[in-house]
Amino acid sequence: MSEWILETQSVSKSYGGVRAVDQVTLRVKRGSVTALIGPNGSGKSTLFNIISGVDKPDSGKVFVSNNDVTGYPPHKLFQMGVYRTFQNPRLFFGMSVLENTLLTVKSPGDNPLRALLPSEWVNHELNIAEQAKEILELFRLSEVYKNSASEISGGQIKLLQLAMALMANPELVLLDEPIAGVSPHLVPTIFDALLRIREQGKTLFIIEHRLHELFEVADWVYVMGRGRLIASGPPSEIVRNERVREEYLGSSIV
């Protein structure tokens, strides 16, 4: 197994003349918790889009477990073990909490012909339902299992996102601001979830606005500013980094 689960090489992406991502080269170690921070508009989400296949880079390459996945469509990257959440949660609001959770797992019933014969997929369905039950209970979402995803609270939506990430059992989890905007009393729950995911040997690559929340857990930090990678290192070094402080223009990064 490769040491680096994710690698980008000089990845660039422009939108209408603006360089959203400018020659970013970084590596994420397998099993680590890596943070990607930077002020708004620094290109973090765009980078995630490129890594998860939502956007194609204008130039540069992306590697997952040493495989060149540049330009792969999102569903292929999922199959390679890359899971990604969105800053504005993209759930399926026409379906229930349970259905959203079950969706993250491949099933023999995904094929329309097999779907017609329940015997082909019912056992698998019951198994994953068991898993879903455990996971939803972890996040205290099991009471609302049959509620439509449009009926639950904002905090519950964020928790559901993490539940789905856990359920999908990926190798690399790309989380786009999982903590920002969550009410303080839910933050411990989310932290527990992140640690649990990490305990299972998965890699976490997390975008956050500021380092504060991730300071304790992050093994490595990348800092982006105006599309470029401006610093990288362990949290303790980053806090003292002058360039980083400049980029945040006086506002605290911790």
């Binding site: 296949g53 759930l91 609001f93 259905e99 079950l102 779907a115």
Partner: peptide, 28 residues
């Protein structure tokens, strides 16, 4: 049968947000 199955789930997902469905492994 078709709609009350994992296939049906996929359909609704693609209907509601095909990009998100794609990031969850569905070949839209």
């Amino acid at each position: 049968r078709l709609t009350n199955s994992p296939f049906g789930r996929q359909l609704k997902a693609i209907r509601d947000d095909w990009l998100a469905a794609s990031t969850l492994g569905k070949n839209v």
